[in-house]
Design a protein around this nucleic acid. Structure first.
Lengths: 136, 136
DNA sequence: CTTGACCCTGTACCCGGGTACAGGGTTTAG
DNA sequence: CTAAACCCTGTACCCGGGTACAGGGTCAAG
């Protein structure tokens, strides 16, 4: 497959592929005599993996680590799992935080929207302190 | 309160306060004859709100909107609520995505970490397709 | 009344994650 | 054989969210 094909199939820009290659997320593919890259179809899967991982809160650095671990030695699997679980915990706590925030909003929004110019709207006050044990 | 005080209490950098002011997240505070800003203690709450909102996935633009809405007319409250609920849904779907990812990891990681150099590790294959209905 | 800690402005820089553009070579369908 | 569509490299730029630095003014304790 050529670059454009991979990009189209994975739903990214051609430039992005080259960017990932530069960053070490994609290995340098074989080239034709002309210099054209020739990707295996697996590359599409890798790129999609990157995109999904990103959407879910991993940084490119973390993803790079995961990819290297996944291809690496026998300890790789465990390391990847650990990383993913850490991330899960992280997102779970953010989630909780958001839920707390949403609760505060729901509770306070009524108070807030009747007295149209009441400057003592408790919205911000209610949300500005960390809600029980969130380390902020 | 002076800038340094607010910054310390809210746990941010002084520059960050000025940055927020420039972006319109903080209103310009009154000044002394000398030009020194004099903040009300409420500002600390606002900054903490910004930080918490950010930690939970809001962008500064969204936060700005929320702050303006919160201080605005009678429809402000509803609008803020709607925004927060949208965000909640968004994070919930990311969460689900992450959980799916984690499941795949847990399922696949064993397969992956025994055959140390087996290049057909299903990790990436298992994660590269969108898991049932996630719009990715 | 000095000295160190603080504040001011402006401008420039940093990182992450791309995206664009210039200037050129290649492939392939007609 | 030619023209459109693609690919190559390199460099530069974009946005978000800050952070740093230079060059100066101010405040308060001793």
């Amino acid at each position: 497959m050529k670059t454009g094909q991979v990009a189209a199939d994975a739903g990214v820009n051609v430039q992005t592929l080259r960017y990932y290659e530069r960053r070490g997320l994609l290995r340098e593919p074989p080239r034709r005599h002309s210099g054209y890259r020739t990707y295996s179809t697996e590359t599409v899967a890798v790129v999609r993996f990157i995109k999904r991982a990103q959407a879910v809160g991993f940084t490119l650095c973390e993803i790079e680590t995961m990819l290297h671990l996944a291809g690496g030695g026998p300890t790789g699997g465990q390391a990847v799992k650990k990383l993913a679980q850490e991330k899960l915990r992280d997102l779970e706590s953010r989630m909780e935080s958001l839920r707390a925030m949403d609760d505060s909003l729901l509770k306070l929004v009524d108070t807030c929207d009747r007295p149209a110019r009441d400057r003592d709207c408790p919205l911000i006050k209610g949300l500005s302190s960390a809600p029980n044990g969130t380390g902020i």
